[in-house]
Design a protein around this nucleic acid. Sequence first.
DNA 1: GTCTATACACCGATAGAC
DNA 2: GTCTATCGGTGTATAGAC
Lengths: 204, 204
Amino acid sequence: MSPMGEAMSAKHDKSDRRMGPPGSDNWHAMLDGAEAVLREEGHAALTSRRIAERIGVKQRLVYYYFSTMDDLVIDLFHRLSVRELERLREAADSSLPLREIWEVCINTTDARLISQFMALANRIEGLRKEVIHFIEESRAIQVDAIAKALQRVPQAAGLDPGAIAIIATSVALTLTRERQLGTESGHQAVIGLFEKFLASIEPA
Amino acid sequence: MSPMGEAMSAKHDKSDRRMGPPGSDNWHAMLDGAEAVLREEGHAALTSRRIAERIGVKQRLVYYYFSTMDDLVIDLFHRLSVRELERLREAADSSLPLREIWEVCINTTDARLISQFMALANRIEGLRKEVIHFIEESRAIQVDAIAKALQRVPQAAGLDPGAIAIIATSVALTLTRERQLGTESGHQAVIGLFEKFLASIEPA
DNA sequence: GTCTATACACCGATAGAC
DNA sequence: GTCTATCGGTGTATAGAC
């Protein structure tokens, strides 16, 4: 039972234990640490102890802010997802939306981080839901931007914005992944192709 | 297995301990078990104990055939890679090579398994090398098949086989991954586009 | 070749003091 | 809110018998 003096929004886990507020400084610091571990060491190293060590607190505290490690991973992806969608919306609102979106996809995506989340999503049901939601939201933003651009160029009639969105994000992810793995053969040709396409439907 | 023939080539690990022969029945059984675990439970569950349990031997035996778990993972990917490249070469040698290759990429690829290996490749140097090798080999097969097909259709002049290969494999992987995650919005449009393209450069 | 047994590290999660 | 302390479990890897 909650003590009377407590805020209405205080969180509790299943055993009704008091928990730290999402969005607080420590909560963010823990997700920052978790994100760094995931980027640099992979998800096998994503443990409560490693996170605590990295941000200079004791392991027990991680469980004050997240009731399980799976919850932490889900919150981490959710925070990242919100930020990424915001970035996409900003790009879509710029003067050259398609170029900006392409730029975001190909230059600021961390394919290593994504591969960690994809691997985790096979196991963590709640994460899978978040991933699907992100895929659908980000695609909607892209499809909208592409559709608007196509309307302005008559010669683009018949092109499907949905298909273009899937092709572009797929290729961007592959190029980023391969570049970060250490192989880039054939990349220039396909990048050139996309830039030519961009120039044709979104003249600078 | 050839008992005598192994004598000269007997493997030893760093501490000069004798090890089981790669390619033997047990060696394959262990990799079979590892592959199943990776598919069904993800790489967090890929442990020597779990593999042993699955194929009905004791945990110790795994270390008779593989000196470390990382080595096992590398051998597993290598075996898979050899099989997959063989399958691609067969498809490339068929009467409708592009259709066959597309079919392999989009229908028989296990995106979950790939995501596990990709996540592991960030950490295991030797695996990363194997992955890069596979990417380059499979792309070479595809580029070769695409180039041959393009030569036969005059209206395809100017198309870059390397760019087409990257686009096709990227899209195939994305569609497979999303399908296995549980979302398929927009897939039909892009599949239709690829089939139209296939029909134009490789008439049935 | 396959086993028993074990050393040792690390993990998630909890109890409860301050 | 942060801590000390701890439980029970699982992991990699090795020693050495048969």
